[in-house]
């Protein structure tokens, strides 16, 4: 009698735990999956918008559009940059800050991305690495990494020199998988090579 009473309860407990664990895994794995899936759509819309003035959104209800392609040859890395750094946009790809999202010889270009998805490769970036940016019109600019620093975003704001054609890459720090939501930011500055 007693045996029958206890068996199902233990069974339920164990299954509940399994379900909870699975739920947790699916829920958290959804974010990188979404990040990966969206890349495919973004890539497609990037190729479509090549050479056109039109802004082609990756999916009809998207509130952003691709602005540039970033290539780092040494790391064999290619990434399409979206417009905007709001959480929704960053969930899909790295994004460029609105006011600094145009390739120009006298303007900075600022890109932010998630340290645990699109911008995880920033930890492998080294001094003197070359980064190439191409915009929709096919204009290309090369940058060389020349400064890396860690900034506490609660203590100071991001300082951008308005007239310097630098490329600024921002992501969270540390890159360690278990720590997130902290105030530290990893900021890489690359100078334009003429």
């Amino acid at each position: 009698m007693l045996v029958h009473k206890f068996k199902p309860r233990r069974h339920i407990k164990a299954s509940l735990l399994t379900c909870f664990a699975l739920g947790l895994i699916v829920h958290s794995a959804w974010l990188p999956c979404k990040a990966w899936l969206s890349q495919q759509l973004i890539n497609y819309s990037w190729h479509q918008s090549q050479g056109t003035a039109k802004q082609i959104t990756p999916w009809p209800w998207a509130d952003t559009h691709p602005v540039a392609k970033m290539v780092i040859a040494r790391l064999n890395k290619e990434l399409i940059i979206l417009q905007g750094v709001d959480p929704t946009t960053l969930a899909f790809s790295a994004g460029a800050m609105h006011q600094y999202s145009r390739l120009a010889l006298n303007k900075p270009f600022v890109i932010a991305g998630h340290k645990d998805s699109h911008f995880s490769f920033l930890q492998d970036l080294q001094m003197k690495d070359i980064i190439s940016l191409t915009d929709k019109e096919g204009k290309n600019q090369l940058y060389q990494v020349e400064h890396m620093e860690i900034i506490d975003s609660e203590e100071q704001a991001l300082k951008i020199i308005e007239q310097d054609p630098n490329l600024v890459l921002i992501t969270c720090y540390p890159f360690n998988p278990l720590e997130s939501g902290g105030s530290l930011r990893y900021v890489i500055t690359a100078k334009l090579i003429s």
Binding site: V85, A91, G95
Partner: peptide
């Protein structure tokens, strides 16, 4: 230089 606040740049899915 102009000061811009930092965006949030971690998904926090790994933990």
């Amino acid at each position: 230089k102009t000061a811009t606040p930092f965006p949030k740049t971690a998904l926090g899915w790994q933990a």
